[in-house]
Design a protein around this nucleic acid. Structure first.
Lengths: 221, 221
DNA sequence: TTATGATGTTAAGCATGCTTAACTTTGTCT
DNA sequence: AGACAAAGTTAAGCATGCTTAACATCATAA
C-alpha cells in the first residue's frame, strides 16, 4: 500500500499524462503538489524502485501497469466521493473537490464499492470525468474538445470540466457554466487567446487558462 | 490543527479518562495505540506544550479544556460516520469502527455538519454512545451499568457497547447481543468473573473482559 | 556551436513519529 | 525501611517527506 503522499504523486502523474500523453515533468508535479522540484526527484526514484513508475533522469515519468492500477483506485475513490457528496449530502460543485481529496485516502475498497452500489454504478462524476469501475476499467468518454480548440461562431455544450481548482469551479457555477449547458463562442483574441462566450443571454470573457479546463461537444442542431 | 497521530492520542486519552475519571497512564495508551511507552512519553510532552494536556512526569495525563474540545470534535466525526455508514450505506455493526477510524481524520467541520443534518441530528451512535453536538456538548446518556456489576438472577436490556474491537462486535452481532435486546444474567463464576447469560433462549458464557464492554439498564417489568 | 537560462538532480539538514536500550521513579511486599 | 519489579522516561537512531543550496543537464538562440 502506498502512503498518502505516494498516492498523490501517482494520481497527479496519471492526470498529467492523461492530458497530453507525454512523459510527465518534474516541475509540473512540483507545481501541482506545491512542493519543490527536489522532493519530486527523490520521490520519483522511490516510486520507480517500487515499480510504479518508469523513470530515467531528466526524461520525465510514466506510470507502469502497477502504477496505473493504483491511479485507477484513487480516481475511483475520488470521483465516487465527489458524486456522493453532491447527490446525497447536497454539497456544491465547488466544495466537493477538496473534501474528496482527503476522503480518497481514507476509504477502503469495500466501502467505496458500497458507495458505488448506492449510487447505482454511475459512469461519470459531477465534472463529467469517467469513474473507474471496480475492475479498474475506465468508461469510454463522449468525444469532446477543449474550448481552446473551438471555432468562433459555433455553439457547444459542456461535456467535462477539469475540477483542479475550487475557485474556478465556484466561478463557473456562478455564471451557470455547468455540465450540459450550452454556450456560443462569439470571439477569440489572438493577443492572449482569451475567448468570449455567450451563456444564457449573458456574455463572459474567459482566459486561455480557464478555457483549457473546459471540454465541449459541438451542439447538434 | 493537530496531526492524525495527535488526534488519535487525544481521543484515546479522552476515552480512558471517561471510563474511570483517573489520570490516564502511559501504558494504557501505548497498549491501545500499539506503540511503545517511550512514544507516549514523548508525545505527552509535546501535547502538553501545545496546551492539550496537563501532564507531569510519572503522574499520568488529563486533557485540558482545549484538549477536550479537540476530543469532542473527533468523537463527533467518528460517531456520526459510524451511524451514517450503518444507516445509509448498510455496513454492519462490526465493519463501521475501522472505517470511521480513518474517516474521522479526513472530514471537515462543514462536511460533518451536513452528515449530522442528513441523519436528523441524532443523539446516539450505533453502539449507544452519545454524539457530541456541533457546539461540543455531549448529550446526556441514559443511566447504565457495566454487565460486570449486575446481579445474578435479574434481567437487563443493552444500552451501550464499547466498540473498541471489531471481532468482539462481530461476535456480539452473531449471538444477537445488540442495542435494546434483553438478557437474563444467570450465573457468575467467582473464579474468573466470567458470566453466563440467557439471550433469546440460548445460553452464552462471556469473559469478564467482554462483560466490561457491555452496559445495561435494569429491565422494567 | 557554444553560452545561457530553465529545468532537473543531489547533498545536507530538519521535523515528525516511531524504535530499542539504558536509566529513573514508583509502589508494594516483607 | 529497603529491595525489587513494574511503570515511566530519556537518549540515540531510523524512515518518511520535506527544505535550501549547490551542481548537472537540456534546449535554444546568437
Amino acid at each position: 500500500m502506498p502512503t498518502i503522499s505516494k498516492e498523490d504523486y501517482i494520481k497527479t502523474i496519471f492526470n498529467f499524462h492523461n492530458e497530453d500523453g507525454l512523459p510527465v515533468t518534474t516541475s509540473k508535479i512540483a507545481n501541482k503538489l506545491e512542493v519543490t522540484n527536489s522532493a519530486i526527484s527523490e520521490m520519483a526514484k522511490k516510486l520507480a524502485m517500487e515499480g510504479y513508475l518508469d523513470y530515467s533522469k531528466y526524461k520525465g515519468m510514466n506510470l507502469t501497469r502497477s502504477g496505473e492500477k493504483v491511479a485507477m483506485q484513487i480516481l475511483r475513490r475520488h470521483r465516487l466521493w465527489e458524486l456522493f457528496l453532491i447527490e446525497v449530502l447536497g454539497l456544491s460543485w465547488d466544495e466537493v473537490h477538496d473534501e474528496a481529496e482527503k476522503l480518497e485516502h481514507s476509504t477502503s475498497d469495500s466501502l467505496i464499492d458500497k458507495i458505488d452500489e448506492y449510487l447505482g454504478f454511475p459512469k461519470f462524476d459531477p465534472h463529467g470525468s469517467p469513474i473507474p469501475q471496480r475492475n479498474g476499467i475506465l468508461p469510454k468518454i463522449p468525444k469532446s474538445i477543449p474550448l481552446t480548440d473551438c471555432e468562433v461562431g459555433n455553439s457547444y455544450s459542456i461535456v467535462r470540466v477539469n475540477d483542479s481548482d475550487n475557485e474556478l469551479m465556484a466561478y463557473l457555477l456562478k455564471i451557470g457554466l455547468v455540465l450540459s449547458s450550452s454556450l456560443f463562442l462569439s470571439d477569440r483574441l489572438s493577443f492572449d487567446n482569451s475567448i468570449t462566450i455567450k451563456l444564457a443571454d449573458a456574455t463572459y470573457s474567459l482566459s486561455e487558462k480557464v478555457a483549457e479546463q473546459i471540454f465541449v461537444a459541438e451542439e447538434i442542431l
